[in-house]
């Protein structure tokens, strides 16, 4: 169990996390979602007692991290990949961590086996690929067999096989009754892994909901229309107050009227319809919609022409 209450963190004049209150429960995977720079890593560092909050408090199993008598037996974390001395071997890295918390030597070999690094455990970490480094970080998190686990972007640098492996690992850990808190800026990844999501933008809590609820609550429902007379239909729909977007594939996305209303309007014009299909937004879109106003760094990649002509492209 992780409980954050009114967590605030400032770096100089920059507010990285603002009044963040959230709960991470045992037995489920809780996703921690937010755009780049929204404060996910900062929050995780505060949970781990590495960064001190300016306001508020956070506890793990009811205690501030600092007061845990055997931290590695209660909490395990993968914070950033590669936060490991490149000159040390994987086994030496895990062993020096194990020694601090009276963890048996055979547990080091166990976690190396779990993450599949046994055959390279004696190599210097500097020679590891990104994915191997990530696996070593996961091994370190599992070292003390903790009931609470934090993973900051664990699938970074992993291939599809590795991503699937992490997904199964996280689900397995939650099924064993552990508290699993995993950050990502990819909603699609979380949709497959998380049972619940904590969503933040610009350091503020946007929502803490179950993944299902998030999808069903999304207001981003629209109808996709294809028609040889698409221009006439679009004009008629817009006269009736609908919002339309011409997609690259020639279809028209219509928000406002439902499929029945659009079908009847088409019959009155009349135009032939080749497609009339209600769409619900993907999780990615639901996420984008929620965080729209709180994206820290906008990448301006849309060509000006496409933006100006969004209604008639």
């Amino acid at each position: 169990m992780i409980e954050g209450r009114g967590l605030t963190k400032r770096y100089g004049s920059k507010v990285a996390v603002h009044q963040l209150t959230f709960d991470v429960r045992p037995g489920v995977v809780t996703g921690f979602l937010g755009p780049n720079g929204s404060g996910k890593s900062t929050t995780m560092r505060m949970v781990m007692g590495l960064d001190a909050p300016d306001e508020g408090r956070v506890t793990v199993n009811g205690r501030p991290y600092h007061d845990l008598p055997w931290p590695l037996h209660e909490v395990g974390a993968l914070l950033e990949a590669r936060a490991i001395h490149p000159g040390r071997s994987a086994r030496a890295h895990l062993w020096m961590l194990a020694q601090t918390n009276a963890i048996a030597r055979r547990r080091v070999d166990e976690v190396l086996e779990i993450v599949g690094l046994t055959s390279v455990a004696g190599q210097r970490v500097g020679k590891y690929s990104l994915g191997m480094g990530q696996r070593l970080g996961i091994a370190a998190a599992l070292l003390g067999d903790p009931g609470v686990l934090l993973f900051d972007e664990p699938v970074n640098g992993l291939d599809p096989d590795g991503i699937r492996w992490v997904r199964n690992l996280l689900k397995g850990l939650a099924r064993e009754g552990r508290t699993v808190f995993v950050s990502s800026h990819l909603m699609s990844e979380m949709a497959l892994t998380a049972d619940e999501v904590v969503i933040i933008g610009k350091g503020r809590l946007i929502a803490q909901v179950s993944t299902e609820e998030l999808i069903s609550q999304s207001s981003q429902r629209f109808v996709r229309v294809r028609s040889p007379g698409i221009a006439a239909l679009r004009d008629a729909l817009e006269r009736d107050g609908a919002t339309t977007v011409s997609e690259d594939d020639g279809s028209l996305s219509v928000r406002g009227p439902d499929a029945t209303a659009i079908g009847e309007l088409a019959a009155r014009i009349p135009v032939t319809l080749h497609e009339l299909s209600p769409q619900s937004a993907s999780l990615e879109e639901a996420f984008m919609e929620l965080t729209e106003d709180s994206v820290e760094y906008h990448g301006d990649v849309t060509p000006p022409a496409a933006r100006a002509g969004s209604g008639g492209g």
Binding site: G27, W70, D145, R175, E176, R178
Partner: peptide, 29 residues
Amino acid sequence: MSEVEVRAGAPGAAPPRPASLSGHYAMRG
């Protein structure tokens, strides 16, 4: 690798702190 075994033991229960550990992590470690 569909099922990842992290710990032998019954699923569904949070692993308790090992009973053998008392006190606090120590200087010796």
